[in-house]
């Protein structure tokens, strides 16, 4: 028997394709047909409410959708009534909180604007650009480092 040292992938692939193409289909068990028909009969014998929703009679499907709609409306109405008194108090509290936060944000904005103006006057523009470039470079480095760490850790769990 002549053999070839080493087996080039393409040659082996061709050989196996030729061999496997000649394989006949597997013979299904003789019981398969009976099993399928028995299962179909079992499912057909189930009462409609134990089948999937799409197999329900049209009337039952419509009735269920209507009932669910009514239930949802009832829950919303009850929830609205239960929170009726609470709503006014809650609104006043929320409005007060929003006003407070708005004033604080406005003050912070003013301070940030004054600091920015001061920096513009005191620091040369080139320095500002340099700082911005350094921050961007550090950001990219940390993102890259994080991605590399994630890949290494995921590859070797």
């Amino acid at each position: 028997m002549h053999t070839e040292s080493g087996a080039p992938r393409e040659r082996l692939e061709r050989l196996m394709a030729q061999v496997l193409a000649g394989q006949p289909p597997r013979r299904a068990p003789a019981t398969l047909g009976d099993r399928v028909m028995a299962e179909l009969a079992r499912r057909a014998a189930l009462p409609w409410w134990r089948r999937g929703f799409s197999d329900w009679p049209l009337g039952a499907r419509v009735a269920l959708v209507l009932a669910l709609g009514l239930l949802l409306a009832l829950v919303l109405a009850l929830a609205g009534r239960a929170t009726e008194g609470v709503g006014a108090t809650l609104s006043a509290d929320v409005a007060g909180t929003v006003d407070g936060w708005s004033a604080a944000l406005h003050a912070l904005g003013s301070v940030a604007g004054e600091i920015a103006g001061l920096l513009r006057r005191a620091v040369p523009t080139a320095w500002l650009y340099g700082c911005a470039a350094m921050v961007a470079a550090l950001y990219v480095s940390f993102v890259g480092l994080g991605a590399a760490t994630y890949k290494v850790l995921q590859a070797r769990p």
């Binding site: 002549h2 053999t3 070839e4």
Partner: peptide, 22 residues
Amino acid sequence: EFAVPDNVLADVEGGDRRARLE
């Protein structure tokens, strides 16, 4: 390491070979 024989397909038509391959 495995050298694939040139006559690997010889006798592959046999039912026994098919069953072994399966």
